[in-house]
């Protein structure tokens, strides 16, 4: 099998287009790079959707946690505690079995598929982590900004919309960048955690693991996954830096640089 054939056959294999069978013997480098690369599509799908949807929930959670009302604050605190205090791996398993028993009862049967079920877990997980980040930022909004808003007669929603929220985002952005990177890393767990890969349509690590099992040689497939993820991480940092520059456009020059410190959260 030539390289071009491998690309034609496997470039979209993870979403069900192309060759039906995975390669079984004489694995070429081309096949491995192509097939693992097609798996990355799923990582991007999970990461991107969870990030976008989770962002809105996280804002709601952060505002709820900062609320003085007991019945609004407590659920948000518990939500954050449960999702940040337990391993994502266990959350996936638990969610899968919940969805499975729901399917047996005839409720929302499509949730046992990874595309829907695992996505929900990732959304809730990232909502909890980012909610905590946003909550922290919400509490450190400079008092002077809020006093200035009062002086201009801004109250309620318009004060939140124009003053509090933009500053929260600006303060939270570096930590949120890390969260986004970790979220994309977490997407590799999906197909190892109960959710089945239907018709061998899996993510990057699923295919890498397939090749490592078949060839008993970890030195090719895993570095390929690592390479793809480094590219993905660089892309995330680049995009988030653009946003960071926009959020900080009114600040002195030094504040605009983002410092990437991945180990300090999660």
């Amino acid at each position: 099998m030539t390289c071009v054939e491998a690309i034609q056959g496997y470039a979209l294999r993870s979403i069900g287009i192309g060759e039906r069978l995975l390669p079984r013997e004489d694995f070429t480098l081309c096949q491995q790079i192509t097939l693992i690369g097609s798996g990355v599509l799923w990582n991007i799908y999970f990461g991107l959707l969870a990030l976008v949807i989770g962002f809105f929930i996280a804002n709601a959670v952060a505002v709820a946690k900062a609320s003085p009302r007991y019945w609004l604050r407590k659920p948000a605190e518990w939500f954050i505690l449960v999702f940040r205090g337990s391993p994502l791996f266990i959350q996936f398993f638990l969610a899968y079995f919940i969805f499975l028993s729901m399917k047996q009862a005839g409720i929302l049967p499509f949730l046992t598929a990874a595309q829907a079920g695992a996505l929900i877990v990732l959304i809730l997980n990232t909502a909890a982590y980012s909610g905590e980040i946003f909550f922290g930022a919400l509490r450190t909004v400079p008092r002077g900004d809020l006093e200035a808003a009062d002086a201009y007669g801004l109250t309620g929603w318009s004060r939140f919309r124009r003053i509090t929220w933009p500053t929260t985002m600006r303060l939270a952005w570096p930590a949120y960048t890390n969260e986004a990177i970790f979220l994309f890393h977490a997407t590799t767990l999906v197909f190892f955690s109960g959710f089945p890969a239907q018709r061998q349509q899996g993510d990057a690590l699923y295919y890498a693991n397939y090749f490592a099992d078949k060839t008993f040689n970890p030195f090719v497939p895993y570095p390929i996954v690592a390479g793809y993820f480094i590219l993905l991480t660089l892309a995330i940092i680049g995009l988030f830096n653009l946003m960071n520059r926009r959020l900080n456009r009114h600040m002195p020059q030094e504040a605009r640089r983002i410092r990437y410190r991945p180990q300090l959260i999660r």
Binding site: I181, F184, H185, A186, T188, L189, F192, L205, A208, N209, A212, P218, Y222, P223, V225, A226, F229, I230, T233, L234, Y260, P262, Q263
Partner: peptide
């Protein structure tokens, strides 16, 4: 550990 998921290292 910066750019690559830890699970990849575990398996590797």
């Amino acid at each position: 550990v910066r750019g690559v998921p830890d699970i990849v290292f575990f398996l590797f």
